[in-house]
Amino acid sequence: MKREIRAAARTAGFDQVGFAPAAPPTHAEAYEAWLANGYHGEMGYMAREDSVRRRLDPREALPGCRTLIVVSLLYGSTPPRTTAPGRRAADRTDASRGRRLPVVARYALGRDYHDVFEERLDALSAAIEALAPGARTKRYVDYGPVLERDHAQRAGLGWIGKNTMLLHPDLGSYFMLGELLTDLDIEPDPPFVHDRCGTCRRCIDACPTEAILDGRLLDARLCISYLTIELRGAIPEELRPAIGNRVFGCDICQEVCPWNSDAPGPDRPPFAARPGQPMPPEDMVAWAEELAALAPDEFRARYRGTAFSRPGRDGLLRNLAVGLGNSGESGVRPILERLRADSSPLVREHARWAIDVLPG
């Protein structure tokens, strides 16, 4: 049964598959301390009593659960677009003055990975039902109450690095995780017990907002991914300069990780854009002009099925205003003046800040 499920997971398109027991996560106390310190910021759903209860015991999420099938999808370490032919990835993500390229997390330029995972997990669930009629399953991606990296380490898929990402010695960290909870009793895989970060602290030192703390802790309130995606309100002014031109997510702690230097990419990028799916402009001014002209329903239609729908129109314009202010280019002033008159108070405030920090 285990061998056939593993084969079915491969057929469904997953790159890794491991089996973990449905037991409380190893780092349960660390998770509770993380919440107690407020490191989750405005992500209140992570601290809800029912959510915490299910994260601390998978059997709360699926009564009778005995096994977690943990799967991964590689999305690749190669930047999806570059500023010029031959320019290195490190150059592309540098937030130096005069840059108008909107830097976007590698996973985001294409389909929303949640949709891809759901389709493939449903296919795996159907295969399990065919193998074991009556077996119950429940799928989760990162929006669900599962401490996925903890269970992934227990399933042998890698170790949790100092940047709190799951790392694999051959695959690096450019992959997403998904889980299928089941009441089938399947022999677990050996856990990944080796910590291969050693004395390296490149991720900690490279984080421009100092969000990565010693002890494998991430203060989400300082993380650029949180600030540009999950945060619904204003980005703290003292953090805005460090964001540079990163307008959606951040890959810095993965870019500097030695385990990603030779990490392979997928044969077929799993989150590739659908045919006809429009791509955001490669210029912050052009992107801001496009978004500023969109009504809410037009934005939803334009970005449906993409990760950009998460922060919404106003959140993206907020991020672009910060990036334009950090560009240091006087030529971005006209679009910022337009955003200063936007219907959204959030956009207006960040546009005013950006205008104030521009030279001259």
Results as ranks from 00 to 15, higher is better:
119 E>G: 02
143 Y>M: 15
3 R>Q: 13
82 T>L: 12
311 P>W: 00
7 A>R: 10
256 V>T: 08
118 E>M: 11
27 H>P: 08
149 R>T: 06
134 G>W: 01
353 W>R: 02
267 D>A: 14
30 A>I: 02
175 F>A: 05
188 P>T: 07
258 P>T: 08
269 P>E: 12
260 N>D: 11
183 D>A: 09
348 R>F: 00
111 R>M: 07
89 A>C: 00
179 E>P: 00
157 L>D: 08
175 F>Q: 05
238 E>V: 11
1 M>A: 13
223 C>Y: 00
44 G>F: 10
330 S>K: 15
118 E>W: 01
149 R>E: 07
225 S>D: 06
214 D>M: 11
155 A>I: 04
287 W>G: 04
160 I>N: 05
232 R>Y: 02
60 E>C: 07
290 E>R: 14
83 T>R: 14
185 D>R: 01
21 P>M: 09
173 S>H: 05
186 I>T: 09
1 M>F: 12
223 C>N: 03
30 A>W: 00
229 I>K: 02
194 H>V: 15
19 F>W: 04
185 D>M: 00
178 G>L: 05
81 R>I: 07
40 H>E: 13
193 V>P: 10
299 F>N: 04
353 W>S: 07
155 A>F: 03
163 N>G: 12
27 H>W: 14
80 P>S: 14
140 Y>G: 06
77 S>T: 12
356 D>S: 14
3 R>F: 01
221 R>G: 13
257 C>Y: 05
352 R>I: 09
233 G>K: 12
214 D>P: 12
26 T>L: 15
175 F>T: 03
127 A>T: 02
254 Q>D: 05
166 L>M: 11
126 A>H: 01
169 P>T: 09
94 D>E: 13
107 Y>M: 09
242 A>I: 04
149 R>I: 02
63 P>V: 02
94 D>N: 14
143 Y>N: 15
234 A>I: 10
225 S>K: 07
267 D>G: 15
149 R>C: 08
204 I>D: 07
122 D>F: 01
3 R>I: 02
270 P>I: 05
305 G>E: 02
181 L>T: 00
92 R>T: 12
262 D>S: 15
348 R>V: 08
193 V>E: 15
315 G>N: 08
35 L>P: 01
280 P>D: 04
25 P>W: 03
67 T>A: 00
177 L>Q: 04
113 Y>D: 06
132 A>K: 11
177 L>G: 02
299 F>T: 01
308 F>K: 09
79 P>A: 11
97 R>S: 13
82 T>F: 08
38 G>P: 06
30 A>E: 13
318 R>Q: 04
121 L>I: 02
145 P>V: 08
46 M>H: 13
56 L>W: 10
5 I>R: 03
30 A>H: 11
160 I>A: 06
191 P>M: 03
334 P>S: 06
121 L>N: 03
235 I>E: 08
216 R>N: 07
325 G>T: 01
10 R>Q: 13
339 L>I: 00
188 P>K: 05
